[in-house]
């Protein structure tokens, strides 16, 4: 069984894994990182999105062995101490979540979107989050939240790299 080394939310793990084990199952079932949920089995919904070496990735579409040597940040590692990431704050402020199941993936995808486009239009947010499905909100407040976070991050001069320092 291959042995991999992966850093998740700042902690380094050495794990023996079956080659077929999905990254999301490594996170959830082996490492207890249950903040990242699974919403489908065809990589359509995006609920399982995490940061893999600083870019968003659907962790159901990555094998654990492919993450060998990588840095993973999940929703659980996003806050700095008690200080939420501006995207987390914006989702709360704009009521951009209801059941919250899509939220971890949506937040991760939105952060990556701002990396490419720090001040996205409404349309750009909608296009950029097309790979993340939400059944509760109708997306209006998600779009508002992403644009609010963009504003706040640019005002704070912040373009935070989401990876373990």
């Amino acid at each position: 069984m291959p042995r991999i080394t992966v850093t998740v939310d700042g902690v380094t793990y050495e794990e023996d894994v079956e080659p077929r084990l999905l990254l999301v199952h490594l996170l959830r079932d082996r490492l207890g990182k249950t903040g990242t949920p699974v919403g489908c089995d065809t990589s359509n919904c995006g609920a399982c999105t995490v940061m893999l070496d600083g870019r968003s990735a659907k962790s159901c579409s990555v094998l654990a062995v492919q993450a060998d040597g990588s840095d993973v940040v999940t929703i659980e590692g996003l806050a700095r101490g008690d200080e939420w990431h501006p995207m987390q704050k914006a989702f709360h402020t704009e009521h951009a979540l209801q059941c919250g199941y899509c939220t971890p993936g949506m937040i991760m995808a939105a952060i990556d979107l701002l990396r490419d486009d720090p001040d996205p239009s409404e349309e750009a947010v909608r296009e950029g989050l097309e790979g993340n499905l939400c059944r509760c909100t109708g997306y209006c407040n998600i779009v508002r939240a992403v644009r609010l976070a963009a504003q706040e991050m640019s005002q704070a001069g912040e373009r935070r790299e989401v990876r373990t320092p």
Binding site: R28, D29, T34, G35, P37, I75, W84, F91, Y101, T103
Partner: peptide, 16 residues
């Protein structure tokens, strides 16, 4: 929201 935006959730599948 606090638990939902930080991943401190208790979805049934999280239970071990």
């Amino acid at each position: 929201d606090a638990r939902l935006v930080t991943g401190r959730t208790t979805w049934t599948d999280n239970i071990q």
